[in-house]
Design a protein around this nucleic acid. Structure first.
Length: 423
DNA sequence: TCTGGGGTCCTAGGACCC
DNA sequence: TCTGGGGTCCTAGGACCC
């Protein structure tokens, strides 16, 4: 999808059309740009750029916090359209999908023809623009769709993959970021064509497993990691995490632990929804100077319960935090999933305690479904006052906002973020 | 410039086991 | 006293993607 978040915002507020729009937060907030309109991009604004930088580059830009529920709604429509064209649809990210079109020619015609039909149907069903790349591999499809933007269709003929990629910068290959790009530049490789001319063994010696995958990519082959799976194949999640960056760094132990509690609850809830039991809990701690540590611990028995997750996260925090040091970010991650049968065994061992917790948490999930994320939480999560500002709840009771929040509300209504600095 | 949040994959060292 | 080889699991950090 082309500038997906911005385009959806424009549908709800047509006055934004053609203007420089930045989605991701307000101009004075900590955070980065999630999406920028094409008008904003002309000022040098792009995604992942700090909001404050974007505000300096383009002072007249309109800053929007974003509306996740709207994006979800439109994503659903997008997905429905894609389903008309292939049974094998893989949502690669919030605004990208792969379709395996093998065997659909009788129904939809030649690739270019079906791509144009998809393009037109997407527009009429969602009012949104997309770009389509067609290729014999996911890599080629992805790179060609990037080159087709905005609002275009590009077909790379079978056999022409290497020729298409050769003149492109190595950084255009998905998986080659800043660091890899610099390493390649250092040995005289600028274009994908330079890469394709390298000896495979040489690349493997220099860059290990990645070097080998890189050699394949330079020829247009899917290689390495997730690219090796079939399109549409269901891949189980490997981890679930939540993290929070404070608007201002804090060294307040009570407040930090309250935040840990809230993050633990969010992780626990996701585990229960997905039916996962996690064996490893990880704490992430980022200090004022941006130095970041992670500390993990594996449990004897897997869990999906908020209080167990919090217990571990809190222990890791208390044994690793430089007491009093100003913290910028806290995160809680669950990983190392095991199937639910282990949880059942846990029940046999300790039926009363665990069953009571499970019931309590299920009831809490239900309350949150009905009244919003901030409606209920374990006691520690309510200290420090941060719950006073309701999180992701459009039906929040009025009369609690501070002067600063009221001034923010003079713009479009906030839908998320701001889980701290309560009244 | 001042750096979000949610993920995946890879590397590397050390503990531990046979 | 000077210490193999193979395997798995755990932990920490970092590159990368959107």
């Amino acid at each position: 999808m082309d500038a997906f978040f911005v385009s959806v915002e424009e549908l709800f507020d047509p006055s934004l059309k053609g203007k420089p729009v930045v989605v991701g937060g307000q101009r004075d907030e900590r955070g980065v740009v999630s999406a920028a309109s094409y008008a904003a991009r002309r000022f040098g604004v792009h995604s992942a750029m700090p909001l404050r930088t974007a505000a300096k580059l383009c002072p007249q830009a309109i800053f929007v916090n974003g509306h996740p529920e709207r994006y979800r709604e439109y994503l659903h429509k997008v997905h429905e359209v894609l389903g008309h064209f292939s049974p094998l649809v893989e949502m690669a990210s919030v605004d990208e999908a792969y379709l395996d079109m093998t065997g659909t020619e009788r129904l939809h015609g030649r690739p270019l023809r079906s791509a144009h039909r998809l393009h037109a149907e997407m527009k009429s069903a969602t009012q949104l623009n997309c770009s389509i790349g067609i290729g014999t591999s996911r890599l080629v499809a992805k790179v060609s769709s990037a080159k087709a933007k905005p609002n275009g269709v590009l077909w790379i003929l079978p056999g022409e993959e290497a020729k298409f990629l050769a003149p492109l910068a190595v950084g255009d290959i998905p998986g080659v970021g800043k660091v890899m790009e610099e390493k390649l530049h250092a040995i005289g490789i600028e274009k994908v064509g330079d890469l394709a001319r390298m000896e495979e063994r040489d690349l493997e010696e220099r860059f290990g497993k990645w070097g080998l995958a890189l050699a394949g990519k330079s020829r247009g082959e899917d290689a390495g990691g997730w690219f090796d799976t079939a399109v549409g194949e269901n891949v189980d999640a490997k981890s679930m995490s939540h993290e929070h960056t404070f608007n201002e760094d804090t060294g307040d132990a009570e407040r930090l632990q309250s935040t840990l509690m809230r993050l633990s609850e969010m992780v626990g809830r996701r585990l229960r929804e997905a039916g996962y039991f996690a064996r490893t809990i990880q704490l992430k701690l980022r200090y004022k100077d941006f130095s970041t540590i992670t500390r993990a611990h594996s449990l004897d028995e897997p869990t999906q319960m908020d209080n167990r997750i919090f217990e571990e996260a809190r222990h890791l925090f208390l044994t690793n935090w430089k007491e009093g040091a100003a913290v910028r970010l806290l995160g809680v991650q669950a990983s190392n999933f095991e199937s639910g049968t282990m949880g059942a065994q846990l029940d046999l061992l300790e039926p009363s305690r665990d069953e009571r917790w499970r019931k309590a948490l299920a009831a809490a999930d239900h309350v949150r479904d009905k009244f919003g994320e901030a409606a209920i939480g374990l006691a520690r999560g309510m200290k420090g006052g941060f719950r006073e500002r309701v999180h992701e709840n459009p039906a929040a009771p009025p009369g609690r906002s501070t002067a600063r929040q009221r001034s923010e509300l003079s713009g479009p209504p906030r839908s998320h973020g701001g889980t701290e600095e309560g009244g």
